[in-house]
Design a binder for these strands. Structure first.
Length: 592
DNA sequence: GAAGTCACG
DNA sequence: ACGTACGTGACTTCA
């Protein structure tokens, strides 16, 4: 009956902090051990949950009126986790959210946001650590094994600390102009991400197992020929051993580059120039590529398939990237190979949920260049976008002063490199490292580039001055990144801050825009009760699982939502694509 | 746990 | 003369 009294109190609040204690870090696997509540500083309640799932569900159901109450703001630290856990029990949290972790991310994105640190920094209080309850590393126990008295203290303290942090950050958010980004962007996005993570994506495990064998054979072949050329077998995966072979034994370079710890540098960037002359180097680079694909994707991804759902569930981190981007981990589904032939084979392992569905990918075309063109008001570049021109070709035509049709592959490639360089904060050194151009040629190219796009140079200077004056730069939605190093006397440190002053608003604005699109698309799919599901976000791309019968409804819906997410002086363009999935039986037949 | 390397946008 | 592209996460070696 105690929980009835607690529920009555909860329902009288407009704002309540809660925190779930569970048996696992993975929310989809986690079972409830308890929930703590707090709505007044220094005071809270703890509800322990039984081991039995049915009993737990019944107990949680008594709190359903609270969790599903639209009028009560739910406060928490990393709420996406708690929302996912509660959904394991059929509870869909409703109402506004206040996540202290995300609030602090907006207040200072470059800092860390774990609760213990926030508590020490903003409340001057060191909370009980989770390690003191369940230990750490291999010896870590389940929260279930901890005595009620101990869990209660720990759990209620966490809710209390979060509640107090909420008061601090609530006052701070408007001061850093983050109220809108917080309320209208990050909090709604949190629910979208929780849904995407729960959905997961189907992986063709049999196909990957088969491909693993192919790669094994390729690796064995390469290892044999490399050992022969080196005159001795060695551990190719050891940069130390590899450096000794290449630079001491074979002496392929008279002045080998060293890493900052004094080892021989053997990265692709360093070795590539020797690949044409020394077959062993080409073989090593190929071995590296195959080994990477096999160990990081082909062999690792099948282990990530959740046995319950049969799908791969990533976790999106909303508070990691200093620019406002998401990141993805466990597993990272934002760096699935694509650039090489072998990489494309890996990507083909991601498939629709069944034969009635299709994977639809929608990506923003050149969103970062469009943003810098619009923000800098660089009319020459804006015009090219308005005319729907290939921007790298258009840049090449202007920079090399030739008609659009006469642009060579090489000219376009160089223009493309400079266009990207501009976004990153280009230097002649950096450009020459990325191209076959010398440093002086690079400098000349950059000078001509700025002459072609004069407002771009002005904009870069303007951003640096803004950072110097205000100590931060901001995106189109006012998301800030603080750059204290902009005043550094160390020119290397200062240079990095200056490049951030240019890059952060570009990368961050693109992140803002795709987040708007995600929220709108999620809402539209829900409002129209469509079966299409958003699965993945890869910075400028969204991937959907679409019933074939919904394709013609969903394609224009997604395209329109992405292109109208934000209005700039240049049009936003989203390109949609999908490939027909070979039925698995026919695939086998083709292989025979 | 740091360093080196490399997958992606 | 110096050291430089922006943002991530995962795997392997090695101390």
């Amino acid at each position: 009956m105690a929980q009835q009294l607690l529920l009555q109190s909860l329902l009288q609040q407009t704002e309540v902090c809660f925190d779930t204690e569970t048996t696992a870090i993975d929310a989809l696997e986690a079972e409830l051990v308890g929930i703590s509540f707090c709505w007044t500083a220094h005071k809270g309640y703890y509800v322990p949950f039984p081991v039995d799932k049915e009993e737990s569900t019944a107990l949680l159901n008594t709190f359903r009126p609270f969790f599903e109450n639209e009028k009560i703001t739910k406060v928490g630290q990393n709420l996406k986790y708690d929302l996912k856990v509660l959904e394991n029990y059929g509870i869909k949290v409703q109402g506004a959210l206040f996540d202290t972790m995300i609030a602090h991310y907006l207040i200072n994105p470059d800092m860390r946001h774990n609760m213990d640190l926030l508590s020490e920094t903003y409340l001057g209080y060191t909370p009980i650590t989770i390690e003191s309850l369940i230990g750490k590393g291999k010896a870590q126990r389940s929260m279930r094994t901890v005595a009620l008295e101990e869990v209660k203290e720990y759990a209620v303290e966490d809710a209390d600390v979060t509640w107090q942090l909420k008061d601090v950050f609530k006052a701070e958010l408007p001061k850093v102009n983050a109220q809108k980004v917080y309320t209208d962007l990050e909090m709604p996005l949190l629910k979208v991400l929780a849904a995407m993570e729960r959905e997961g994506v189907t992986l063709d495990v049999a196909y990957l197992k088969e491909y693993s064998k192919t790669l094994d054979a390729e690796i064995a072949q390469l290892e044999a020929t490399i050992a022969e050329q080196a005159g001795t077998p060695f551990n190719l995966a050891s940069p130390k051993q590899l450096g000794d072979i290449l630079f001491e034994k074979l002496k392929i370079d008279s002045k080998p580059k060293k890493t900052k710890t004094g080892q021989y540098a053997t990265s692709e960037e360093v070795l590539a120039p020797f690949a044409a002359k020394h077959k062993i180097v080409a073989d090593i680079l190929e071995w590296r590529q195959v080994q990477k694909l096999k160990s990081t994707y082909v062999d690792a991804l099948p282990l990530e398939v959740n046995p319950r759902t049969g799908r791969v569930h990533t976790t999106y981190m909303q508070t990691v990237a200093a620019t406002g981007r998401l990141s993805s981990n466990n597993p990272n589904l934002q760096n699935i190979p694509i650039r090489t032939e072998r990489g494309q084979r890996v990507r083909k392992a991601f498939i629709a949920r069944n034969d009635d569905y299709i994977l639809l990918s929608a990506d923003y075309s050149q969103i970062e260049l469009r943003i810098i063109a619009a923000l800098s008001e660089e009319h020459n570049m804006i015009e090219s976008f308005l005319h729907g021109e290939d921007i790298h070709r258009a840049t090449a035509a202007k920079v090399f002063n030739v008609p659009l049709e006469a642009v060579t592959r090489e000219q376009r490639s160089h223009a493309k490199t400079v266009n990207f360089g501009i976004i990153y904060g280009v230097s002649a050194f950096g450009l020459s490292a990325q191209t076959d151009l010398s440093r002086s040629q690079s400098k000349e190219l950059i000078d001509t580039y700025y002459a072609t796009y004069p407002n771009l140079r002005n904009y870069i200077q303007k951003q640096i001055h803004f950072a110097q004056e205000h100590g931060y730069v901001e995106t189109v939605l006012g998301r800030r990144r603080y750059l204290p190093d902009i005043h550094s006397r160390n020119q290397v440190v200062r240079g990095a801050a200056e490049r951030n002053a240019v890059n952060a608003p570009i990368q961050g604005s693109a992140a803002d825009i795709i987040k708007i699109a995600m929220i709108r698309i999620y809402d539209l799919l829900q409002a129209q009760q469509l079966q299409t599901r958003m699965l993945l976000q890869v910075h400028d791309e969204l991937v959907f699982d679409v019933p074939k019968t919904e394709l013609e409804i969903v394609k224009p819906l997604i395209k329109e939502a992405m292109e109208s997410a934000f209005t700039l002086a240049v049009p936003l363009v989203a390109d949609l694509g999908y490939r027909e999935q070979l039925a698995r039986c026919s695939l086998k037949m083709i292989n025979k």
